[in-house]
Computed example of a mutant assay.
Amino acid sequence: MTTASNSGFSRRAAVAALALAGAPPAQAADELARLRPGVYAPDCKAAGGAGTTEFDGANLSPHYQICRTTPGGRPHVFSQLCVESQDPTRQRLATASRAQLLADPDHAQFETTVVVASPTSFAMDGASYKFCGDPR
């Protein structure tokens, strides 16, 4: 009887471990929160150009976009909801709700893979980014 009890416990522990491995949204958000807010680029000489991404402490926004970044349900995967923000009048979107962003005709949704290496570096979809400075 002890063997059955132990094997039942082992199965429950294995199922629990698998469930935790497949449910990392909070862990993913914690990982992203390790990053220092600021401007990131593969090469800081090009900071401010098309390869630049800004991290505001919660969201990764590529050049000329304002994004909401949320855990995508798998390790290192994030959902991005972004709108074009090149026009200075569109900066109001920085505080827009998810519903307002979805209503914008220029919105885009996509998944991105982010692996944080340190508080000042990460890889996004295989490209390495490093901290280049504080946001504007």
Rank of each mutant, 00 (worst) to 15 (best):
A26P: 08
D30W: 14
E31T: 14
E31C: 07
E31N: 14
L32D: 00
L32Y: 00
R34H: 08
R34A: 05
L35N: 03
P37H: 04
Y40G: 01
Y40Q: 10
Y40E: 07
A41P: 06
P42K: 00
D43Q: 05
A46V: 12
A46M: 13
A46R: 14
A47G: 04
G48K: 00
G48C: 03
A50F: 12
T52N: 08
E54V: 15
F55D: 03
D56Q: 01
G57R: 01
G57W: 02
L60V: 11
S61R: 03
P62T: 11
H63E: 15
Y64I: 13
Q65R: 12
C67D: 02
C67S: 13
C67H: 10
P71R: 02
G72D: 00
G72C: 04
G73D: 02
G73F: 00
P75N: 04
H76A: 07
P88C: 06
P88A: 10
T89S: 14
T89I: 10
L93N: 12
A94G: 13
A94E: 11
T95E: 14
A96D: 01
A96I: 00
A96M: 05
A96H: 13
A96V: 08
S97L: 03
S97T: 15
S97H: 02
R98H: 14
R98C: 03
A99E: 09
L101P: 02
L102I: 11
